[in-house]
Design a protein around this nucleic acid. Structure first.
Length: 476
DNA sequence: TCTGGGGTCCTAGGACCC
DNA sequence: TCTGGGGTCCTAGGACCC
């Protein structure tokens, strides 16, 4: 905690609704609800006129419609417009200080300590007043509330204290006086579950929380959360303002208007989501090793599945393929309301390029760069079967051998998958390293020639993989 | 017509390695 | 041949935030 109120928290008031009211005169002074208008939509932002009727963010739209008076405007979000307004404000804040942490599209912390501004309470108050006026002028009337304090915690609480169009400066030394009367739910990180647990022990205000021993908090909430609450209740918060944070995951998900059961349809949706995620990865110059799916059942129970590969990817077809495998592990027969695809364990460079050369020596497979996808000519044994054995690189696993006489069907063993396309080219598809032995056989006769290939990584193959689904490549 | 979409962080358990 | 302990990676789930 600092000795000056040198951290600002700037929060635009009901931003989505405010932009709509700015852009359409007839909406001013009226209840405006922005969010998903379809059956399962929720409220993203309600204007203050709508909030008076009990409408708030995250409320189901159906409920918002019941609460709102006639004449309420229901609008689908126009993100590009909000983004432009956000950029105007962030640019403005960047002129106040070089250290600005944008938390979301409508919120940011500004560190004044790295500037030459007067950090007295009066000085900061005047500065915040100016910033508020500039925001309103630059955005055409969208207002922001500002809190200034000696920590992020108090700055954020301050900006919330007199919304909308509010300004609260917490003088150094006054933190506990401001904090302790507030309900615990005002602390960042205290949601419904934490609030409920605290209430069970008679804790309602931050002041109450400050009287709970550390051991109890750790008991109830675990080490990290427990210690965090202990500190926050005492206004101990030295989290720095950080301007750049690296993304940790990229994901896309969709809630369907009606629950889906058709596996073909589900797979198609998965492909679309995978393509969206991959496109955003590429746009951000990112690649990731872990592919996740999220499945929400009709009863809102949610499961996730994940698989981590050795090499990162930004290839939508590969993400889709892995996502389909993961989905195959989940029982979808009773109806799916939401499907999601994500990529995590991100690397910020495309590793593909490093290994797109020729096959390395076998020795290189063990710990070194991996080979491209292994191809083998199925046509070498026309009209015959092909036996494929996949031997993992690690000797202890060598007894796990996948064997299959018909490579048209997938082989599921040791994470490997064998296919062939209509051109008579077989593919080994998997993330493991090792050797694949292909034995070409005549029908019901003695084994034919045996060839051994290093198993590489499909991601690294420069050519388009074949369409294993038989339904065409997921389109864009 | 209850419950969006994009994220972050934490925990717990198991595998694996030394 | 009764078995320890720490570190790391991975997966699944949950709480939380805007």
């Amino acid at each position: 905690m600092r000795g000056d109120p040198s951290i600002l928290h700037v929060d635009l008031d009901a931003m989505f609704a405010a932009v709509e009211q700015r852009d359409k005169v007839s909406l001013r002074g009226k209840p405006v609800v922005v969010g998903g208008l379809a059956g399962r939509g929720v409220v993203a932002t309600a204007s203050y006129e709508a909030r008076a009727f009990g409408v708030h963010s995250a409320m189901p739209m159906s409920q918002a419609r019941r609460r709102s008076p006639p004449g309420t405007a229901y609008l689908t979000p126009r993100f590009p417009a909000y983004k432009r307004t956000s950029e105007v404000v962030m640019r403005l804040l960047g002129e106040v200080s070089p250290l600005v942490e944008q938390v979301s599209i409508d919120e940011a912390y500004v560190d004044l300590a790295v500037t030459g501004h007067d950090l007295s309470t009066a000085g900061v108050t005047e500065l915040a007043r100016q910033i508020k006026a500039e925001i309103a002028a630059a955005t055409g009337g969208v207002t922001g509330s500002i809190g200034a304090a000696s920590s992020k915690l108090l700055a954020k609480i301050g900006s919330d204290l007199h919304k909308p169009d509010g300004l609260t400066v917490v003088p150094a030394g006054q933190e506990l006086a401001v904090l302790h009367p507030l309900p615990v739910s005002r602390l960042g990180g205290v949601g419904p579950a934490t609030e409920q647990r605290l209430r069970r022990s008679g804790v309602r205000t931050v002041g109450d929380l400050a009287r709970v021993p550390l051991d109890d908090l750790v008991d109830w909430f675990g080490t990290a959360h427990g210690q965090g609450l202990f500190r926050l209740a005492r206004a101990r918060d030295d989290r720095p303002v950080v301007s750049e944070r690296e993304a940790k995951s990229v994901s896309a998900e969709e809630t369907f208007d009606v629950d889906l059961t058709d596996p073909v349809r589900l797979n198609r949706e998965l492909d679309l989501l995978a393509a969206r995620v991959a496109g955003r990865l590429r746009a951000g110059g990112l690649t990731g090793r872990t592919v996740n799916i999220k499945v929400r059942h009709h009863d809102f129970t949610t499961v996730t599945r994940a698989v981590t590969r050795d090499q990162p990817t930004d290839d939508g077809r590969l993400v889709a393929q892995l996502a389909r495998r993961l989905l195959a592990e989940v029982d979808t027969s009773s109806g799916i309301r939401l499907l999601g695809v994500g990529v995590s364990t991100l690397a910020d460079f495309a590793q593909d390029d490093l290994f797109s050369g020729s096959f390395p020596e076998l020795g290189g497979l063990f710990g070194g760069p991996v080979a491209p996808l292994t191809e083998f000519p199925v046509a070498e044994a026309p009209g015959a079967g092909v036996a494929v054995e996949v031997l993992p690189a690690a000797p202890p696993m060598a007894e796990e051998v996948a064997e299959r006489r018909d490579v048209a069907a997938p082989v599921w063993r040791t994470g490997q998958d064998v296919r062939h396309d209509e051109h008579g080219v077989g593919w080994v598809w998997g993330s493991g390293l090792g050797l694949v032995t292909v034995r070409f056989e005549g029908p019901l006769t003695a084994p034919g020639p045996v060839r051994t290939f290093p198993v590489g990584d499909p991601l690294l193959h420069p050519a388009d993989p074949p369409d294993w689904t038989g339904r065409g490549t997921p389109g864009r």
